[in-house]
Amino acid sequence: MTSAAQVVALVAIGRQAVRSALAVRSEVLVSAVAVLVRVVLVVLVWRAVYAGVDEVSGVDGPTAVAYAVLGAVFTNVLNPFWRSSLEMRVRQGRIAVDLLRPVGLVPQTLAQQVGTTAAAVPRCVLAVLLALAIGALRAPAGGALGLLAFVVSTALGIAVALLCNLLVAMTAFWTLEVGGALMVYRAVAQFASGALIPLWFMPGWLRGTLEHLPFQAQVFTPLSVYFGALGGGDLAAALAVQALWVVLLALLAQLVWSRALHRVVVQGG
């Protein structure tokens, strides 16, 4: 199979994921309403938190509110509650069929995740528009260049999140009881990525710990870029750290995958 044909196949898988994410009308509507309600509620909470306070840990109220909005939107895209298709297919024993396809299983899974992520974009656009309408969000710091840096950082953040999801999903090859691990992962990722509360507010020891984990590269780094919290040198360093995580996690995924393949081939799916 040529690489062009493989790309076509992956695009088809991604599009199928978009379609199935949008297949049930009530689900689409509920997911959209859910993220809008969440945005309103986090805005209310953070405005209440900042009532009568100007600045805490060097962060002012409007920034904290806007951060919370974007955190909610990022979580909605990056950390969906549903399980990865990979785990389900291992569980149902359909993995053998997937392995026979001319496109690698890892690209298949990633294409599916990208598709599911893409399906979340329209509702997130709505959420951002709502936040703008109620004055809870402002344009990114640093003009066009700042926007570009934010887009790059977001893309890297999404890559980190997809790779982390993939790694967790691949534990399905070793145990059929992935449910608990996924819940723990989701909870840790949500907190440690800074999606719930920025690392700025965390006590020094906690922030120090989280900065060594890949999660902060998913949400906290892009949002820091958005709010212009990182100067020239720091910005470059932050993007480099994100890129490093992408490379490290990709290598790790490759390693785990070859072990998993070995396991499937030797012991049967």
Binding site: E177, G179, G180, A181, L182, M183, V184, R186, A187, V188, Q190, F191, L196
Partner: peptide, 18 residues
């Protein structure tokens, strides 16, 4: 299925704990 019991309970603790 004791290990699943522990796993899932821990998952819930993590979710609420976050």
């Amino acid at each position: 299925y004791r290990s699943n019991l522990v796993n899932t309970a821990l998952g819930s603790v993590a979710l609420q704990g976050s």
